[in-house]
Structures are given as C-alpha cells and as structure tokens.
Simulated assay, not measured.
Amino acid sequence: MTQHPHNLEHSLSVHGKNVQCLAEILRDNVNLAVWQRPRNNHWAAFVNEFCNRAGNLERFVSLERGQSAATALPGWALDIEGSNHWIADVDELAEMYQCLFEPEAIGLRIHVLADTMCPRFHVDRVPVRLLCTYRGPGTEWLPDPLVTRPAGEGPLPEQSVPSDRIQTIPTAAVALLKGEAWEGNEGRGLVHRSPQPNGTPRLVVGLDWLSS
C-alpha cells in the first residue's frame, strides 16, 4: 500500500493492491482510497455487450441490506452471458460499503456514458462515494496541494492544472471518494471529474450513503 503524503494541512490519498486499503478512508486526513485490483475476465464480455446495447443509460435504485444490484438492470441485460458474474461483483462492492459505513440504505447508480458526464472539476456534497469504472477511462482527480479552493462558501473555481499532473483512477479499481458532507471534511472534499470517453462508452458504478 502506498500513500501520497503532502503537507500536514493537506489530505492524503491511499492506494493499494489489497482490499484492506479501502478502510483507510476512515482516517480523518484521507480523502481518497483506491483498491487497485485487476480486471476480471469473468465479467468482461458482459460489460462490452451491455455497453454496446445500452447506448446512454442511467439507472438508480435504493438498496436495502441484502438486496441485489440486479434490480437496477433492465430486463434484457440479465440475459447477457456473464451478467451473473458482474452482478455478483457489484453486490460484493455494496456489501463492503455497507460493512464500512453502515448506512441505512445504499444508492446504486449505473451509468453507461458515451459522453462526458461531469467535465468540470468538482466536489461531491455527499459523505463518501464509491466509484468503479468497469469500462473506459477512470475518474480523474487532483492531489490536494494542486487544488484551488474557494475563499469562503461558494462553488469550486476553475482549476488551472497542467494535464500531466491530473491523476486517473485505473479502470476496474475500486475508489472511495470523501465528499463535503463527511463530518469534519467540509471544504476538503476530493476534487475530481469525468474523463473523455475517447470514443468508447464508459460503464461506471457509483454507491452513495442514503439516510432517511
């Protein structure tokens, strides 16, 4: 596991090849944890077929404990070979998220994106979001020392960062992004954006902390 330490006033990012590195997001000074896992050939064929048939697609469901991600897929997608392997993977991510944070419910978003969803750098107004890009380039983010924050309350200003300093979460990696609504993290949420799809639709799964 590697840490990218900065000055003490800056937040850290933690990256590792073991799933246990995700628990580092619980530390006060960590606002990004990335499990750099390899792609899984069991769901690769499903992902390609699903993206090719879906075009642009967005699905959202609220998952109670024990509910499956299968409820978020259109019926035709369940018939694609390998769908069971992909659903099992998303269900495992939801179970991990539940164990780490114990939310009342989990918001599951599935996006197939032929265009850029959020082209501007921004922060999320959520406690913590899980992102996994199953196909296409992963989410881009900025190390904390490179970020220009607003002087007070207000939107994040335009970020003037050389392209070679912008970081990318690897495809298939599992990332936990701490947002502005995490207690004590106000004004320190991870700054990130969607990349250009480069002609290939992206498949992105997001998990959010829901409460009543």
Rank of each mutant, 00 (worst) to 15 (best):
H85P: 01
H85K: 07
W86N: 12
A88Y: 05
A88V: 02
A88H: 00
A88E: 05
D89Q: 13
V90L: 04
D91P: 09
D91I: 08
E92M: 04
L93S: 07
L93K: 04
L93G: 00
M96G: 06
Y97H: 10
C99I: 12
L100N: 02
L100R: 06
L100Y: 11
F101E: 02
F101T: 07
E102T: 14
E104N: 13
A105R: 06
A105F: 00
A105I: 00
I106Y: 05
G107V: 07
G107W: 01
L108I: 00
L108K: 05
I110M: 06
H111F: 15
H111C: 00
V112Q: 05
L113E: 15
A114M: 07
T116L: 05
T116P: 14
P119L: 05
P119T: 06
P119F: 04
F121S: 03
F121Q: 06
H122D: 05
V123T: 15
D124L: 15
R125Q: 13
V126S: 14
V126I: 14
V128C: 09
L130F: 14
L130M: 15
R135C: 10
R135V: 01
G136P: 11
P137I: 00
P137W: 07
T139V: 02
T139H: 01
T139D: 03
L142F: 07
L142P: 03
D144M: 13
L146T: 15
L146N: 14
V147T: 02
V147G: 07
T148N: 15
R149W: 04
R149M: 04
R149A: 07
G152F: 06
P155Y: 10
L156A: 05
P157I: 03
Q159K: 09
V161S: 03
P162D: 11
R165N: 06
R165Y: 01
I166A: 08
I166Q: 09
I166V: 13
I169H: 10
I169R: 08
I169C: 10
P170I: 14
P170D: 07
T171Q: 12
A175T: 05
A175C: 02
L176T: 14
L177P: 01
L177M: 09
L177S: 05
K178I: 05
K178N: 01
K178V: 01
G179M: 11
E180T: 09
E180Y: 03
E180P: 00
E180D: 12
